[in-house]
Design a protein around this nucleic acid. Structure first.
Lengths: 333, 333
DNA sequence: ATTCATTTTGCAACCGGTTGCAAAAAGAAT
DNA sequence: ATTCTTTTTGCAACCGGTTGCAAAATGAAT
């Protein structure tokens, strides 16, 4: 059925090695045989079988892309950039959807069966142990959008969530708010913990500002909306730093239902800057994650790790910045 | 490094065939040797190499998932369902991002190099010829969200876009609108053409209703917004059927900027029912595509095609229905 | 205990490539 | 023309599995 190396060799009148070598970068073939082989190959429509060659070279050029964020619109951009970035480097993404899975063992097995060259765990909610399971299995791995740790056991690329929390706090302080709040995602998510920490940390030097904290049950519209509706039964803070953009939009929806105005009655700052945050009817002030840089660095790092498996685990964090839109009042004066 | 079949065989004191057979469904192994092998396998942490076995079986259990829709939030749901659905059947999705590519040859080559068992082309904008290129290369293929044709050359699963256009028209007629319009996506997209056709067809029996047609330059927020802003310079129709939900949201944004109210001044009906359409601050009346059914059927069909490669090309279309929310006034009486 | 049918097992070839090695060919130097 | 060096080539083994086939083992029947 499919045309193989042997067919090409026969047609070109050379050995199978010769054919293999013409398709192998830097192998020794004379111009003459290369020409013969290439002619035969195009005539037959041959293209080498990556699977078969991986068997001897030990390289499949497959990269496992593991994620559990299939409900955050930011991740559509993430998948877009990852798949394009990998393709551009001649790598192919093998997607693993972790939606309900929490045990890494299964994913590890699945990806080892396909001898992936490396794995990228793209998630801001998975614990570090998840990526570590791959490293323990001897698979080069990078945790994208992962959590910063001082002595990482595994490569991490992402943002400094603590610094982001601080940045959000400073944005609210600069606007002269007297009472502010953190409305996080699930308390167990590593990103929530760090963002809260940074937020509270920055506010600790401003005892005159009243601070409160609460958590939505998920990084989702509904959870954000539900939590804000609950908060609106009491006395809400003047401004909220929300766990992420989707949550923020749920919060905005609850506020608008309560006939309160943003930013006059309540200010909101999100985190991510997903594509729809800039849509005019959302117009969310938020902290932008440099997604493209994170993804570029993640791919670079996994490629480097494939080449040098024993490199020290490294953490690469990229700076975020506040994107001013319409859900936070302007800084006075 | 990795533990192979041979290691297990040595440890269990049996032949390599015996090991292979214990891991092969329906092969002949006695309970005794199976036990020995399984013991050795778990002790060594062995799991069979799918890549290697594919070489002889001719089955990789890889499915190419080809798409160019990385900016439509609906497709995050689509990827979620596809990856989960494939995983549940023991198949692995190999993602190909077509963002700028228009020539199928490249994708075909990429996926043939990995000997994928089948391909799912998930796109409402790609022409039928794209999927056909895979069929011509002898790869089982299903075009998901593809266009209906009376004599398809390739399996198609999706919705009847013409019927949807008609359904939208009927929804507007039932509400007593005197002037209605179709605001499509790019004129070249197959889905746009069909939806327009159905829409105009249903209205042809209502000569008293004024009808107009225009196109946004893409299925995107910005394009929808821009086109509606243009339309608002003249006299807009009473109600619009928009190419899809993202477009609709752009349109809503333009309308709200013009200080017009929805649905009182202008009614909007979208198509897709993506997750955020139900968000309370969007609350879009739209036509729901049964995404889960389409995806389930697509996977079924590609699996069947792998088993029976010569099956006649088939078109499976699923019915849509109007989801009433807040952007279209209620049916009178 | 013998015969026959059935199941289990290992051998060896194969899947589609790659690669170390030694032989053959080409090129350079005398 | 001869010798030496360098490049090119094919052989054969191997990557990690599968599978047809015949031999060996098991079980049933007499």
């Amino acid at each position: 059925m499919a045309v193989t190396l042997r067919d090409v060799a026969d047609r070109a009148g050379v050995s199978r090695s010769a054919v293999s070598r013409t398709f192998t970068e830097g192998a020794s073939v004379s111009a003459k045989t290369r020409a013969k082989v290439e002619k035969a190959a195009t005539e037959l429509g041959y293209s080498p079988n990556a699977i078969a060659s991986s068997l001897t070279t030990g390289r499949t050029k497959l990269i496992g892309l593991v994620s559990n964020n299939f409900h955050n619109p930011l991740f559509l951009e993430v998948f877009d950039l990852f798949t394009r970035g990998l393709q551009d480097r001649g790598l192919r993404p093998l997607l693993v959807n972790l939606s309900h899975e929490t045990d890494p063992a299964n994913s590890v097995r699945m990806l080892r069966q396909y001898s992936v060259d490396g794995v990228i765990v793209a998630s801001s909610t998975l614990p570090p142990s998840f990526a570590e399971a791959f490293r323990d299995a001897g698979v080069p791995v990078v945790h994208s959008f992962g959590r910063y740790t001082t002595s990482p056991h595994v490569h991490v690329v992402g943002i400094d969530n603590i610094a982001c929390g601080r940045m959000a706090a400073e944005a609210l302080i600069a606007r002269g708010h007297r009472s502010v709040a953190f409305l996080g995602g699930p308390e167990t998510a590593t990103s929530t913990q760090d963002r809260e920490r940074g937020f509270l940390d920055a506010l600790s030097s401003h005892p005159e500002i009243q601070v409160s904290v609460s958590y939505a049950s998920a990084y989702s519209f509904d959870a954000g909306r539900a939590e804000m509706m609950r908060l609106l039964q009491g006395t809400p803070a003047e401004a909220y730093f929300c766990g992420d953009d989707v949550l923020s939009i749920g919060v905005l929806s609850a506020i608008s239902d309560a006939r309160l105005r943003v930013p006059d009655d309540i200010g909101i700052i999100g985190l991510n800057d997903m594509e729809m945050a800039r849509w005019e009817n959302i117009n969310l002030t938020t902290i932008r994650q440099p997604v493209a840089q994170i993804i570029g660095a993640s791919i670079d790092l996994v490629v480097e790790t494939i080449q040098h498996p024993d490199r020290h685990p490294e953490t690469r964090l990229f700076p975020c910045r506040v994107i001013e839109r319409g859900t936070l009042r302007p800084v006075p004066r």
